[in-house]
Write a protein that binds this DNA or RNA. Structure first.
Lengths: 263, 263
DNA sequence: CGCACTGTTGATGTGCATCAAACAGCGTGG
DNA sequence: CCACGCTGTTTGATGCACATCAACAGTGCG
């Protein structure tokens, strides 16, 4: 059995189309929350050792999701939330007539599936942007454990609330900013999130295509390309293919603040 | 003391500007969750009589918020969540340079302040669109009670998750739909929410201005006016001032589904 | 009654979408 | 090895949906 068979293969292209193929848990991967480097960013934030040990019992077995495969799809019943351990995902919705809106990009330490709690079914589709690894957390078990561990319950609630805040920020971006400002805000945000995980804030690699960035920001892929060119011309950031170099973070922030348009 | 003094007066215009004036609780208004008509829509959904009685102890005293007054503002520390009992609110953010994005409209039975849990401070500003009444729910007490009442905890978590789903729907609207589609979706959504509260789905009154609808939908107020004219011309809905008549709900849905643009 | 706010409609401008073409990278197979 | 097709990216030309600007009408509150 080659490494390849450890992954679930699915349509690499889009959120829509293709029959559902549920990722299969494979040989259990042993890493637990208690010795995970992400515990400071993920569900266990601020939990005591004994508490994290109990959380460990919930995360049955991590599994891999191959690039392009769907972790879950709109309408799937809620079984687990998923913590991203390695890699990255996009989440998005598809309208009745096939228009696709990317609602988020998620990297290590992020929690996926929070929108499913509302109706016990996933409201969006999550697709891996690269070969990735997630920790499934059985939701009913998590609810039960959270009843006994107030700080776990508090963390979960905060994660939900934080997602609301992030969505509102994105709404402000799409609703009120021009294309260059949106792109600058996107790059800054990604830079900061990667930085919080110990990666370089100035140098990183985009795992998503221009089209996906465009969908996320409410723009077309060509507009993303032109925005990249503008940022380069202004010496703010250099994007070559998927490689990003932030040259002037303060300049980017200033662009996002957008004082040039008096209102 | 006139009835007027029972209200808190604040700047009636915008989310930004004007110093903060915190609404003051006044003479306690006695209605409790246990005899509130909204209990089927609000936090107590599906709770037993004994449980609702415990919830009653949290809602210290309802209070009124006058039209244009802020219930809370960005940056205010989180003390309570607020259930809208009577009236309606808009919530929104203001960017560094003063651009305002309305992130939601909230009517009776809706919960306000969920985005504050993330950082123990409100991330948006809530302003009453008309003379309104809210039930403040002290958050720390709610957290404590929820620990003892699993179904209360479950309801709270679902409310948070539902807000995420709604935000994603709005993102799809703003990111992918044209102005007429957005307006149609807005009217349909409002119609359905009012209908769920026992009001007419076909006939209702807009409590917000064109400018606020525009901000919510990522459009200018003139575009809202023109959209209204288009819906009238097509015989889908009749909007005269603030009075709305939905003439053809199915036609509106069809417009939102938007089969006319092949993708 | 008068003034400020809100809503409507028309004329014009512009930012981004759309259409189009060329190119780079990359795996495949002859 | 290179030719080939496929995917993703870049850049240019053109068009359109919505923003902007402007004038006016309706509304309501002090």
């Amino acid at each position: 059995m080659t490494v390849h068979h450890l992954f679930v293969v699915d349509n690499p292209t889009a959120l829509r189309s293709m029959p559902q193929v549920r990722p299969q848990p494979l040989r259990p991967l042993k890493t637990k929350c208690s010795d995970c480097a992400l515990s400071a960013l993920c569900l266990p934030i601020g939990l005591g050792g004994h508490e994290v040990a109990q959380l460990d019992t919930l995360v049955a077995q991590r599994f891999k999701v191959k690039k392009g495969a769907a972790l879950f799809r709109t309408g799937d019943p809620l079984r687990s939330l998923y913590a991203v351990r390695i890699g990255s995902f996009k989440t998005g919705m598809v309208s009745v007539d096939g228009r696709e809106q990317v609602t988020g990009f998620h990297i290590a330490g992020d929690m996926l599936g929070l929108d499913a709690i509302s109706a016990d079914a996933h409201a969006c589709t999550a697709v891996a942007l690269e070969d990735s690894e997630v920790c499934p957390i059985h939701y009913t078990h998590l609810e039960n454990l959270a009843r006994q561990l107030p700080s776990l319950q508090h963390n979960l609630t905060r994660l939900l609330s934080r997602e609301i805040v992030q969505d509102h920020t994105l709404l402000m971006l799409i609703g009120k900013m021009n294309s260059d400002e949106r792109l600058a805000a996107f790059l800054l945000s990604l830079s900061q999130r990667l930085s919080a995980r110990g990666y370089s804030a100035r140098h990183f690699v985009l795992k998503m295509r221009r089209e996906e960035i465009g969908s996320y920001l409410g723009l077309r892929l060509e507009t993303i390309c032109r925005g990249i060119a503008h940022l380069r011309d202004q010496g703010l950031a250099h994007v070559e293919g998927r490689n990003v170099t932030i040259q002037d973070p303060e300049g980017l922030k200033h662009l996002v603040a957008g004082c040039h348009r008096p209102l």
